[in-house]
Design a protein around this nucleic acid. Structure first.
Lengths: 117, 117
DNA sequence: TCAAGTACGCATAAATTAATCACTATACTG
DNA sequence: CAGTATAGTGATTAATTTATGCGTACTTGA
C-alpha cells in the first residue's frame, strides 16, 4: 500500500468511517456480499465498470480491516469466497440509509452535479 | 474546480452520496453549521487542523451543491453567514449515524488502522 | 500607523486514490 | 490444443483531492 504522510485524524467517528470505507467500491462490495455474491468473479461481473484489480485491492483492504472474511479453498481450480464479519454487517443499515438518501434525492442531486460542471 | 476525466457514476445512491459529500470536511462542516456555528471564522477556529483555504473550498462546494446557503452582509467589516438548506438538514441523521457507528466501534477500528500500517 | 481581524482566491505542489500494463498458473471444454 | 475460466500480483501511470505559497482589500483598536 501507500504510506501515509499526513497523520490520520481519528478524533471523530466521521473520520474513522471515512478513513476505512472511503474506497470507491467498498460499500457496494459489502452490500453485494451481503446479498449473496461470495466469489470474486461474481462481484467483478456485477460491478463490471470497475477494473478487476481495483476490486481486488478494495476487497483486500476490506479483509485487512476486518469487514470481510476471505476463504481460499485448496481446490485444483482456484476458489475463493468472501463473507461479512460482524463488523461488516454493522454497516448494512448505514449502506441502506445512504443508498435510499441518494435515491430519494436523486433528481435534485443530479441537478446539483450538473450545475457544478 | 477540476474537470473530471472519468465519467461519474450516478447509477446508485451510494455514488451520488459519495460524489457530493466525500470531501474531507464536508460532513463535519454541515454538522457544525447545524450546531450553530454560522461564520467562516468560527468554523475555521473549530476545525483548526484544516487550512482556511481548504475549508473555504469545501464550503463553496457545499453551497454550489445546495447543502448550505451563504449570506454575505454588506457591512463595513466583512460578514458572512452559512445555514443549512433542507437538503443539508436531510443529512443530519446520516451524520449522527456515521459518527456513532465510528465511536461505537472505535477500539476495533483503530486496531484495524494500526494493523494496516 | 501598525497589528490584528474580517473574508476571499488563484496557481501550484504534494498527497492520495484509482486505473492500467504486463504478467503467472492451473484446469476444464470442445 | 486453443479458448475460456478460475484467481492473483508487481510496477507504473493517471486522476483526483488536499495542502500551501503568495496575494487582495477593508476596518477597528492600540
Amino acid at each position: 500500500m501507500y504510506e501515509k504522510k499526513i497523520p490520520l485524524r481519528l478524533d471523530c467517528g466521521l473520520h474513522l468511517f471515512k478513513e476505512l470505507l472511503n474506497g470507491k467500491w467498498k460499500l457496494m462490495l459489502i452490500y453485494y456480499i451481503s446479498a449473496g455474491l461470495k466469489r470474486p468473479g461474481e462481484l467483478q461481473r456485477k460491478i463490471h465498470t470497475a477494473d478487476r484489480r481495483v476490486l481486488t485491492n478494495q476487497l483486500n483492504e476490506l479483509v485487512k480491516h476486518g469487514f470481510v472474511d476471505k476463504t481460499i479453498y485448496d481446490t485444483k481450480v482456484p476458489k475463493v469466497e468472501y463473507k461479512l464479519t460482524a463488523l461488516g454487517q454493522s454497516l448494512l443499515p448505514i449502506i441502506l440509509t445512504l443508498e435510499s438518501w441518494g435515491e430519494n434525492n436523486r433528481i435534485v442531486l443530479e441537478k446539483a452535479l450538473e450545475a457544478s460542471m
